[in-house]
Write a protein that binds this DNA or RNA. Sequence first.
RNA 1: CGGGGCGUAGCGCAGCCUGGUAGCGCGCCUGCCUUGGGCGCAGGAGGUCGGAGGUUCGAAUCCUCUCGCCCCGACCA
Length: 576
Amino acid sequence: MRYSQLFIPTLKETPSDAKVVSHQLLVRGGFMRQLGAGIYSYLPLLQRSVRKASAIVREEMEGIGAQEFFLPALNPREVWEASGRWSVMGDNMFRLKDRSGADYCLAMTHEEVFTAIARDELRSYRQLPQIWYQIQTKFRDEARPKSGLLRVRQFTMKDSYSFDVDQAGLDRAFEAHRQAYERIFSRCGLSFMQVDAHSGAMGGSASTEFMVRTEAGEDLVAHCATCGYAANTEKAESRAKPRPAKASAGSTEKFATPGVVTIEALSKDPFRVAAEDQLKTLVYIADSKVVLAVVRGDQTLSETKLQTATGATEVRPAKAEEIRVALGASPGSLGAVGITNVIVLIDRSLEGAADMVTGANQDGFHFRHVDVGRDVQGKIVDLRLVSADEGCIRCDGRLEIFKSLEVGHIFKLGTKYSVSMGAKVLDEGGKEVPIVMGSYGIGVERIVAAAIELSHDADGIRWPMSIAPYHVVILALQALDPEVAAAAETLSAALKAAGVEVLVDDRDERPGVKFKDADLLGIPVRIAIGKKSLAEGKVEWKRRGASKEAMELVALADVAARARALVLAEGGKLAS
RNA sequence: CGGGGCGUAGCGCAGCCUGGUAGCGCGCCUGCCUUGGGCGCAGGAGGUCGGAGGUUCGAAUCCUCUCGCCCCGACCA
């Protein structure tokens, strides 16, 4: 393709509203433009990369026997009512009405529609297993779109669903997806890791996220370098920093703490109660029920874990009035001593803790000598957020915590949707059983954005060969010079004949402009054709990102074969 | 949804506090020049100052409302 005829609106300056690198470079490089918050138009160059990523996804899905569908993004309310998610999805789902006033939504995922097809059409275990997938636009009314393509309201997702007659079948489908995902992300040039994850609104049991470690990500992963344990902090567990064991110090005793409403204040003069010797009592409303969550004073509650523990679909901090009604005191003086009329959940690390201090549910007073189990009773669950440098739960290593971007997520759904929607088959024994399902997603644009986050420099993008918009860019440094132009033409034709995708910068621009744009666009191989070297029948070959010293003069006649070999070696695909 | 910030030419910004007929850089168009890392010179086009209402002789500037975007938090398969 001739650069002069392509639409590649590059910018000299970084757009002021772009914060993360992938966003900046995609806009500067003329790959995309914003239409609204979290809504982007993909320009020709980006579309090429997205299609390449999609093609890799498609190949690997076909490789595990998955069959491609294309389902409606516009869904009637009924199918979402059937699974109960019309209400569960809340404000995150775009909703609309048709002309007759009937409710519709823009699908944010497709468990319901696929399960409905399975329910209507699958009757026998003989028809199983099935893996169905699609690569489709998804819509989510994100509360806060941000970071360019990393968090948007409309995006492309590969979603697949497995249907099996039993758990063993699901395990096989899950494993097949894990391996397909490993191949997909590797082929797209990403370094990634698999982490244990929270299942959230998807329901189901086990789930694994595929994470790319980058500061641009929004998830926090806890990782143990010693044994390899890795989990999203929504799920991660650790050995809590130990608290020096204390013996019970007799019965509880109320003492005045006027004006003291924080853990911090209580740890100072005149009280000097270490944070780890305090019980932090937090009041939440879980699906309209009051819940007390108790963690150690030096720990942080994980709302996600609280949600898991309560089984509620919505969990929020209680308002001051609600707290007063439930406990008769204000935040800062709360405790769970003797509380039996509401649900009390206690973090596992507090099991057996003795001689603690906690609020007395009377403003200005606390209790001391509080023993968990004796004075504070409730269900012992995992509630606290892990923090860096705590001990690994699997070995004696330490955890590190870092930001990551979720590019894929695989779930063992089990029978949640098949039961709620009535998708059943007859098993070998003629018994009717719910289909055992799995659900598997990949954010296609996130692959592209993650590749940029991982691979760029001060000058621009450095695309992996497999998803680069073109394999080679030819710079005709003196575009108006007949010999240079002719050489560019000849070389372009040779590369094309060899199956290499080539972009020819034939613009009547100064060399500096072409070099800058080429660096910005990040095409893996740059061939510069200038008068001087051309006189000797040579052109300059340079890998994007390679040092100046790595530039080589290559005979014109050798370029095509060499480029073809490189494309193949680096996992690119030759055009047929 | 809470907190903060910003909307002025295609892009990046100044002007606003202290009201007086809108400016800079880049880009764009024309000509000359130049041609291996975003050249140089000269000329030129381009703006309902996000929108509505108000105050005023007069509003980009002050006031009210509103829309949009960005950031932090909450939220989030």
